[in-house]
Structures are given as C-alpha cells and as structure tokens.
C-alpha cells in the first residue's frame, strides 16, 4: 500500500512537473514558431521568476504577491527584450541567435549574483496551503502542489481559449504556420511578435515563481528546465500548443518517475525518448507537416 501510495504521489508530482514544463515550453514553441528565434535564455527567465518570488516572499512574507508580479514583470521584461534585442535577430543565422541568447544566460546569471548572491534559498509554502490533502486510503498529498496543478491547468486552458478563439489568437496561429500570411492579412507582425515574446516570458517567469516553494531557488536552476523544455518542443512539434501540452506531461512523468525509481537513467531516458521520436517523426509527434 505504501508502495502504491508512493507511486500515486510520484505520478501526481510528474503531472504537476509536466504542467510547469508546459508553461515554459509553450512560450518557447510559440516564440520559435512565430518569430523564428531560438531562445536559449528561456530557462534563465524561469530562474528570474523564481528569484523574484524568493525576494517578494521574503520582503512581504507572502508568495501570493509574487504570482501577479511575475506575470506583469514578465510581460514588461519580455516586451523590452523583444523590442530592444530579439527583433534585430529574427533574420540572423542560428549561430548568432544561439550565441546571443547564450550571452544573455551569462549576463542574467551574473546580474543575479551581483544583486543577490550565489546561495541556495528555500521559499516557504503559503500558510493557507501548508497542509496535506487526504486522497485515498491514508495517502495525503501537498495542498500547494495541488494548487500549482490547478493554476497551471487554468493558465493552459486560458491560453488555449485565447489562441483558438480570439482574433489575435488566430493571427498568432497564422503567424506560426505561415509567417508571410500575416503580412498579407494586413496584421501588424511586429505587434504579434512583441505580444508572443512578452507572453512567453511571463509564462516562464510564472512557472519559476510557482516552482520556487517546490524546489530550492539556486543559480543555474533554469538549465535543467531549459533542456527538458526544448525536448518537449521537439517531441511536440514546433509551434503546436497541443503538442507542447501532451509532450510536457509525458516528459514530466518520465523524468519524475525515472528520478524516483531509476535515478541513474532518468536524464538519459528522456533524451532516448527524443531520439526515438526523431527517428520516427523528425518534425515532432504533433506537427502537421
């Protein structure tokens, strides 16, 4: 029974981790799909969100303020980055994009070290959610983790509604599928780019803020998420929100269960899965091509 309860907990952890991965990789997939920009610094945005949560939680004593702050800050920061820097790199070669965003990783890490420190920090779970919910037969699960699950699902739902049902959403989909279409339709492509980049940044920072109480906040914490969310994008297919959703859940489960039961093989297993998908469908499982 304890083994079963443990498995159930790990499955829930995997789903919750997968949903966080979805928040990160949905931005990544849209940014590449719409703008054609490879952003290796996307994991650093996650790290910045987590540190923002840490700072706000230790100043105000509450994590709740950090969530809107991460979203608002992310929108502003993302818009600034797109207007100031990424816009110029849209037409550049991959080599330039890779190096530019690698430089941003280094600069963000250095800025973090200069403004704060290089220590590990823990962020307390909000007091209202600091209890366990009994699930079945004496097995209880952290209320905060359940809340993260619900918030992520809510954000995912809102995003799907926005992308599938609104006019701007359909322009984004058009831009992701055929960038030249957007110009033909008379839509301001520049504004779409700023919007997508700002939204992607906000999602990554929100994911960081949500993840802060779940794991320690530490330098380079975005690196693992970066690799995994790129794998999610590759498996899901570029520019596909639905693909990102299902493959994020898959990767979240494999990585979490792998780390729990075969810790030595977890990292390799995820990469091996990607290798299989590339062999079978080189453009991802959910791409239409």
């Amino acid at each position: 029974m304890t083994a079963l309860a443990g498995l159930l907990a790990q499955i829930l952890n995997g789903i919750q981790y997968g949903l966080l991965l979805f928040l990160i990789s949905s931005g990544l997939t849209l940014i590449f799909g719409v703008m054609g920009v490879i952003n290796l610094a996307h994991g650093s945005l996650f790290m910045i969100g987590a540190y923002l949560a840490y700072v706000i939680a230790s100043v105000t004593g509450s994590l709740w303020l950090a969530l809107p702050a991460a979203i608002l800050g992310g929108v502003l920061f993302g818009a600034l980055l797109e207007r100031g820097l990424f816009r110029r790199f849209r037409a550049r070669e991959h080599l330039d994009q890779v190096l530019l965003t690698f430089a941003l990783i280094l600069l963000f890490e250095e800025a973090r070290a200069a403004l704060l420190d290089n220590q590990f920090h823990s962020v307390p779970v909000p007091a209202i959610l600091d209890f366990s919910v009994p699930v079945i037969g004496g097995f209880a699960y952290s209320a905060y983790r359940l809340a993260v699950l619900v918030i992520c699902l809510g954000v995912a739902g809102l995003m799907v509604l926005f992308v599938e049902r609104t006019k701007i959403g359909s322009a984004i989909r058009a831009a992701a599928e055929k960038p030249e279409m957007v110009d033909l339709l008379g839509i301001d492509a520049g504004r779409i780019h700023t919007l997508v980049f700002a939204a992607g940044t906000a999602l990554a920072m929100l994911a960081g803020a949500l993840a802060a109480p779940l794991q320690s906040v530490y330098p380079g914490m975005g690196d693992g998420f970066l690799i995994l969310s790129f794998i999610v994008v590759v498996i899901g297919g570029l520019g596909s929100i639905a693909g990102a959703f299902w493959s994020a859940l898959l990767i979240g489960l494999i990585d979490t269960l792998g780390k729990a039961y075969v810790p030595q093989a977890a990292g390799i297993a995820v990469c091996a899965l990607m290798a299989v998908v590339l062999l079978w469908r080189p453009t991802g499982l959910f791409s239409r091509a």
Partner: peptide
C-alpha cells in the same frame, strides 16, 4: 540520428544528445 532533422530541430537534437552524454557521466 540528428541529421535526420534540419535547422531548429537539428540544434535541439544535438543539444539533447550532447546532454545525454553529459548525464551519462554526471548521473552514473
């Protein structure tokens, strides 16, 4: 494996395979 893909996917595939080698020495 990686050369079955192009452009962005090639970059990501090489990133993931490189990290796989990294994990091989980091985690085992």
């Amino acid at each position: 494996l990686a050369l079955r893909t192009k452009g962005f996917f090639f970059l990501m595939a090489t990133l993931a395979f490189g990290q796989m080698l990294f994990f091989l020495f980091h985690d085992t």
